[in-house]
Design a protein around this nucleic acid. Sequence first.
RNA 1: GCCGCUCCCCGGGCGAUCGCUGUCGGGUUCUUCGGAAUCCGGCAGAGGAAAGUCCGGACACCACAGGGCAGCGUGCCUCGUGAAAACGGGGGACGGGUCUCCGCGAGGAGCCCGGACGGAAAGUGCAGCAGAAAACAAACCGCUUGCUGGAACCAGGGUGAAACGGGCUUGCCCGCCGAAGCCUUGGCGAAGGCGGGUAAGGGUGAAAAGGUGGGGUAAGAGCCCACCGCGCCGAAGGCAACGACGGUGGCACGGCAAACCCCGCGCGGUGCAAGACAGAACAGGGGAAGGGUCGCCCGCCCGUUGAAUCCCCGGGUAUUAGUCGCAUAGAGAAAUGAUCGCCCACUUCCGGCAAAGGCUGGUGGGGACAGAAUCCGGCUUACAGGGGAGCGGCCACC
Length: 120
Amino acid sequence: MRLSRKHSMTRRDEFLRVRRNGRAKAGRFVVLSTLEDPDLDRLMVGIITTRKIGKAHDRNRIRRRIRAIISRHGDALVDSHRFLVTIPRHGCAGASYAELEKDWLKQARRLALLPKPGDP
RNA sequence: GCCGCUCCCCGGGCGAUCGCUGUCGGGUUCUUCGGAAUCCGGCAGAGGAAAGUCCGGACACCACAGGGCAGCGUGCCUCGUGAAAACGGGGGACGGGUCUCCGCGAGGAGCCCGGACGGAAAGUGCAGCAGAAAACAAACCGCUUGCUGGAACCAGGGUGAAACGGGCUUGCCCGCCGAAGCCUUGGCGAAGGCGGGUAAGGGUGAAAAGGUGGGGUAAGAGCCCACCGCGCCGAAGGCAACGACGGUGGCACGGCAAACCCCGCGCGGUGCAAGACAGAACAGGGGAAGGGUCGCCCGCCCGUUGAAUCCCCGGGUAUUAGUCGCAUAGAGAAAUGAUCGCCCACUUCCGGCAAAGGCUGGUGGGGACAGAAUCCGGCUUACAGGGGAGCGGCCACC
């Protein structure tokens, strides 16, 4: 899917709603949380990169990789009327794109956002 | 050719597919005609440090940006570049050097290297540990000397056993020799004790009241002398910092100002979240006069000076990805990414060639530090690898 600026979560209260009412799963590299909202007309995406992850250069690269993952797999999501927040964890700076993608997909399946590999 | 130092430059390249931000052009749908949603195409899209936010500006506001104090910055001289900070060239003084030359030596001269390099003869302060003693310094060892002390030794005298000789009363007397020990006189006087001299030597230290050589002395000492070094005074010369050279003093009330401080010079404060404009609900605001009260000028004081009160008049703020500030990247918590192929550095291992630097085949690894947030100019810090120039050293060949 195309992931333009209109899909970005920017407001603090949106992040707070997801944190309070949504569901979350933590993996090796990322924490993925989500909240369904039928009022939304599109998928809303948020990525939280804190100073703990690394310096500005590393945080930028991780954010871009996660956006690349979401743009590649976003069309396969079960229901696109939802918030989707990804929080990179501590060891992210050393991880490759493939490792990040594998971990992100695993958490997405645990949240039942994607169909099981065997299902059609 | 290799190695080292200094300075400068680059800091991966090309292509394909799918995306992102801005902008320009075009299409479709919806529309309250302001626009909104969506699609296609063109163009542009991180750095030498974008970093730290340490300096200097531009720009903006604080009423004016004026004086003083405080505070901050800066600091040899000269020339150049620059708006300023700052940077560069040359020179000087100081410090260092495994270098070269001169000298017996202390040292001197040259060459090379270094950088916050005004003032310690205004005041205050600081100096751990070690060491006997460390700032108007000090006697631990050692050396030396006076007094005391008397070991050991030597000499004289006295006493004096045995042996020997003689006498006889046969176990006593006399004589001779005169040992050791003891007593005594004298000599030489060790250790120890008390006191004085001494900074040459040892030891401690970053540093111990200048150094080398000689005289001198009880031993020593700038105590004296020569030379070296140093301080002070004068001074040829030089734009200047400085100072050739001369005189003089037996020689330091030394070090630290990147401790406070003093002196010269510079600096008003806050920073694009500066600030300007547009504009519904809600309620407040602006202008003029006056100089008692309060306050602003973002450390304090002073000076010029403003506002509430009173009179008159009609307009101001939250918020909105608003517009401008604002850029041939960009103003929204902020876009330059993902995947793949080929190549280029660099590199692991296994071979081949070559006298050697090296050349070459295969194979695997593999791209440092790091992401613009108003914009420039500096400084500092981080950084794989590569290239160039200059200088120095070594090796080979001609």
